[in-house]
Computed example of a mutant assay.
Amino acid sequence: MVPEEESMNMDDIDEESPDPEDRWYKDDLEDRPFDLCPTIPVSKEEFEDWCKLWRNALIIKFLGKRVGLAFLEQRLQRDWVKKGMIHVIDMDCDYFLIHFSDEEDYSHALLEGPWMIAGHYLIVQRWRPFFLKSEHHVRKIAVWVRIPNLPIELYNYRFLWRIGSAIGHMLKIDRNTSIHSRGRFARICVEIDLAKKLVPRISVLGSELNIE
């Protein structure tokens, strides 16, 4: 569950004591000129502190289908939860925010896709601030990328991580790739930005390798 802030007992409030939030508003409201869009002060430190709660959260959306909150939570509890708990929040524009209490469950949901529920794929992406205010909501998604015909001498953890970092935000190397048990292609999980062009190939030591 998402931790709740400590509740405030109204009986404990001293109406004679100054409100700490009043430091932002030194002038009386009656003396202030009307502002059609007042700026609400939030410091960088405050905002970063408020964001900490959502670091282990994902934003998801169904492709071509609308589902109810109860149905989705039941299915995700079955497919994603191994150790901790999840809290599903219904958002605007048919998005859902999934908060994880356990980091391993979070990584499992983010990295082990693609996921399908009721015959429809889920778009899964990491939470980021002001998500619904973005011009393009579905912008960054985690995808598995293949590098076919990778020379065996390049099946190296550091080299594969460099590939991922060159084409997006590197997340994970497939375990079968990392232990050399798969000789036909290497597979890495990368978060890519859909607003940018996708990298079709890489160059290493004078040779070009395709990316799928």
Rank of each mutant, 00 (worst) to 15 (best):
Y95L: 14
V81F: 10
D27K: 15
N9P: 01
T39P: 02
E16N: 10
L69N: 11
E30H: 08
S43A: 04
R32M: 15
I98W: 07
G64M: 09
L97M: 15
Q74L: 04
L58H: 05
R66A: 13
L53T: 09
D92F: 12
L29R: 01
R75V: 12
W54R: 05
W24H: 15
E16H: 07
E48C: 06
P41F: 05
L36F: 11
P20K: 07
V67A: 13
P18H: 06
M8G: 00
E45H: 07
L97Q: 14
E73C: 08
D35K: 10
P38K: 04
S17Q: 12
R78L: 14
G84D: 08
P18Y: 07
I59N: 11
Y95C: 15
G64Q: 05
F62S: 05
T39C: 10
L36S: 10
K44T: 00
Q77T: 14
L72A: 07
D14S: 06
D92Q: 15
M10F: 10
K52D: 01
L76S: 03
P38Y: 11
I89D: 00
T39A: 12
L69D: 07
W50P: 02
D94Q: 08
D79W: 06
D28P: 01
E73N: 12
I98E: 05
Y95H: 13
I86F: 00
V88C: 15
F71C: 03
D92P: 04
K44V: 01
M91E: 10
R75N: 11
I98D: 03
D19R: 04
W24Q: 09
D35G: 02
V42R: 08
I13R: 03
E73R: 13
E46N: 03
F96Y: 12
W24D: 13
E15H: 10
P41D: 03
E30A: 12
D49F: 05
F62R: 06
L36C: 09
N56E: 06
F71I: 08
D90F: 08
H87Y: 04
L53R: 08
K26V: 14
D92E: 11
Q74M: 06
D35M: 13
D19K: 08
L36P: 00
P33H: 06
K61H: 05
C93E: 15
I59L: 14
E21R: 13
E6W: 03
K52W: 02
V67G: 00
F71E: 02
K26W: 08
V88F: 02
Q77M: 04
N9Y: 01
L53Q: 03
A70P: 02
D90C: 12
I13F: 06
E45G: 02
W24N: 15
I60A: 03
Q77C: 12
L72E: 00
R55K: 15
I40M: 13
